[in-house]
Amino acid sequence: MTFGEQPAYLRVAGDLRKKIVDGLLPPHARLPSQARIREEYGVSDTVALEARKVLMAEGLVEGRSGSGTYVRERPVPRRISRSGYRPAGGATPFRQEQSDTGVHGTWEARSEQAEASPAIAQRLGIEPGDRVMCTRYLFRESGEAMMLSTSWEPLAVTGRTPVMLPEEGPLGGAGVVERMRAIDVIVDNVTEEVGARPGLADELQVLGGVPGHVVLVVQRTFYASGRAVETADVVIPADRYRVAYHLPVK
């Protein structure tokens, strides 16, 4: 194969993809059968099958048992704002966006003590096995699951203080910056790394995706004088949301 040439299955998938994007195959339309693809493009059954698999892996079509393969409804991506400014009142970015846009968002949270894994210990600058408070969040928008987050805070920092539980106590839900300030820990820096990967089965089950769907992962860490005081993984469906940053220029 020379430069610019494509395997037959990718050529077929590309043509079908263009028809989907251009609206010639609208949402809920049935994808041509394997036999029809074979005849129309002059390819083998294997090539036709592989082309359909590509479109399914891209989330453009879905199989329905005993019925066939259909074009999926493509949601219009919404924006999830991340800001370099500290939200008023110490609210988290999610809470701030909900109040700004008027969208009715809700969240559930569950905290439990755990031992830091080697990966989390490295991010927090502690030893593997050190105790951390692990909090798992499920965020919903208009009742639909839209974002997952798991955070870890070293109990060496928050243990035996009023802010040990992020969503309970006098500053429950106030956000990391305000909670840490209450125990005289001044957060002065935050880093975020954004990546993408296939969603895990349990994540997609909650977020409503199908196997192979891609999620965005925002890896966030708050620091106080160089010491990590919280790290978190925020998981977002890539086909439904975009992460938008608004950062101040100094």
Rank of each mutant, 00 (worst) to 15 (best):
G173L: 00
Q219S: 14
M133W: 01
V43C: 12
D233T: 09
I183Q: 08
R160T: 13
A91E: 11
A48R: 09
A121L: 02
S33E: 10
S225F: 03
F139H: 14
P170L: 04
G199R: 01
S111F: 04
P75L: 05
P87R: 09
G125W: 02
D45Q: 15
P118K: 06
D239W: 04
K250G: 14
P166V: 01
A109D: 04
R38G: 05
S142E: 10
P237R: 03
R179I: 00
A109R: 04
E203C: 09
S149M: 14
G105S: 06
V215D: 04
G226M: 03
M1Q: 13
G209Y: 06
L216H: 12
G159K: 05
G84P: 07
E178V: 09
M164K: 12
Q205C: 05
R95W: 07
Y223T: 02
A48D: 10
P237V: 04
H28S: 15
L49Y: 10
L216Y: 11
L155V: 08
S225E: 13
G129H: 03
I20N: 06
I236P: 05
T161K: 11
V234Y: 04
R179W: 00
S65F: 12
P128C: 08
V12Q: 03
K53D: 12
L204K: 06
P211F: 00
T158E: 00
I120Y: 03
G63F: 00
I126V: 12
A35E: 14
Y241F: 14
F94G: 11
R36S: 13
F139V: 13
I126E: 02
R123C: 02
A145P: 12
E168F: 08
R82F: 12
G172Q: 09
G84S: 11
P27D: 13
S149P: 00
R72Y: 07
V21I: 15
V217E: 12
R38V: 03
L200S: 05
V194L: 14
H104P: 03
T221C: 09
T150Q: 08
V47W: 01
P77Q: 02
I37Y: 06
S83P: 04
I37D: 05
G42H: 07
T46E: 12
G102C: 06
L60P: 11
L60S: 10
R181S: 09
R74M: 11
I186T: 11
P75T: 06
P198D: 03
V47L: 02
A232K: 04
A174I: 01
V61I: 14
K18L: 09
V21Q: 11
I126A: 00
V12I: 08
V218L: 09
A91G: 10
A145R: 10
R79H: 10
D22W: 04
R160H: 12
Y70V: 08
A238Y: 02
R242Q: 15
I183R: 07
L16D: 03
